[in-house]
């Protein structure tokens, strides 16, 4: 592959991810609306929100780190998207792999945490403390699953993992070969998305949306962009590990949206857990399932 082709991929992959992410946000809000018997937002609502926020006339910055935090939150995901293979494009997936990707997507969260810290608002700090606790909760099953998948495919390389699954159709998909791990991964991804009942760190009525408390204008807009990326990334990692990756775009899109739709159809009927209850639930069921799945894979 020549350099120009690669650079084009690096530029195009985040754009695609963002666009898909926008529609995922729309789908999420539509699902919530349908569950609550509402009409829900129009087609381009997520885009209107982001444009409006970026175009705010006055914006409040609490200092350089506040700015840098948002830049890291968006930029980190832009980088992460180039490590996730999509149909026809591999980016730098071969040079990073599943394990590195799992750690690269912590960079945006770290950036956000820094930015929020600089805001000097205790609600934000509490939000970040809870978000990190939630991360400690869902990453434990998540890494068990990464281990299981990586052991099963004998590779850490996402391109290999996709090729391995596409070799024999649905029968060789990860979900067919490692159903227990696939279920655990869905659970863990649900917690990762931070929607009810796992939205401990947003908690609007309790800590005033936690990390977002001092975010307005392009700061909040950056977080909206980050949310688009986050939805796409979580879904794409799942599809790549368990649902055969992307053979072609239509199938890939169906899989991506379906994977987000599953937790979202459950989320909006729940209230919110307390922080320690998130730990209890996530450290119990997905971890047990994950360990059982790894045992099955290894024996």
């Amino acid at each position: 592959m020549n350099m120009i082709e690669l650079l084009t991929e690096l530029a195009v992959m985040p754009l695609i991810a963002f666009t898909i992410g926008l529609f995922m946000v729309l789908m999420m809000r539509k699902i919530a609306a349908k569950i609550q018997r509402r009409v829900g937002p129009p087609l381009l609502q997520p885009l209107y929100d982001i444009v409006k926020l970026y175009a705010k006339k006055t914006q409040n910055s609490h200092g350089l780190v506040h700015d840098i935090g948002i830049i890291m939150a968006v930029g980190g995901y832009i980088a992460a998207e180039t490590m996730l293979p999509v149909p026809g494009m591999n980016g730098i997936a071969a040079k990073s792999g599943l394990l590195a990707l799992a750690y690269v997507i912590m960079i945006p969260s770290l950036g956000l945490a820094l930015g929020v810290g600089q805001c000097a608002n205790p609600n934000g700090s509490i939000g970040i403390a809870r978000a990190l606790t939630a991360m400690l909760a869902y990453d434990v099953p998540f890494v068990i699953i990464i281990f299981g998948a990586s052991w099963f495919y004998g590779s850490n390389n996402l391109i290999d993992i996709v090729a391995h699954q596409q070799a024999g159709g649905i029968a060789t998909w990860g979900a067919a070969k490692m159903p227990v791990l696939a279920i655990a991964a869905l659970f863990s991804m649900y917690a990762m998305l931070g929607k009810q009942p796992f939205e401990i760190y947003v908690a609007p009525a309790e800590i005033a949306t936690g990390p977002m408390v001092e975010m307005g204008g392009k700061y909040l807009g950056g977080l909206f962009v980050m949310q688009c990326f986050q939805l796409f990334t979580a879904s794409a990692i799942y599809v790549t590990m368990f649902l055969g990756g992307g053979e072609n775009w239509p199938f890939f899109l169906v899989k991506l949206f379906a994977i987000i739709a599953i937790p979202m159809s459950m989320a909006f009927v729940f209230p919110r857990y307390r922080t320690e209850d998130v730990l209890a639930v996530v450290w119990r069921w997905p971890v047990l399932l994950g360990l059982a799945g790894v045992w099955l894979v290894m024996h």
């Binding site: 829900g40 408390v213 307005g216």
Partner: peptide, 15 residues
Amino acid sequence: DMERLGIQPMVTPRQ
């Protein structure tokens, strides 16, 4: 359903 008009509640003045 205000959300169909793009109106939604927010929590803090900054947002």
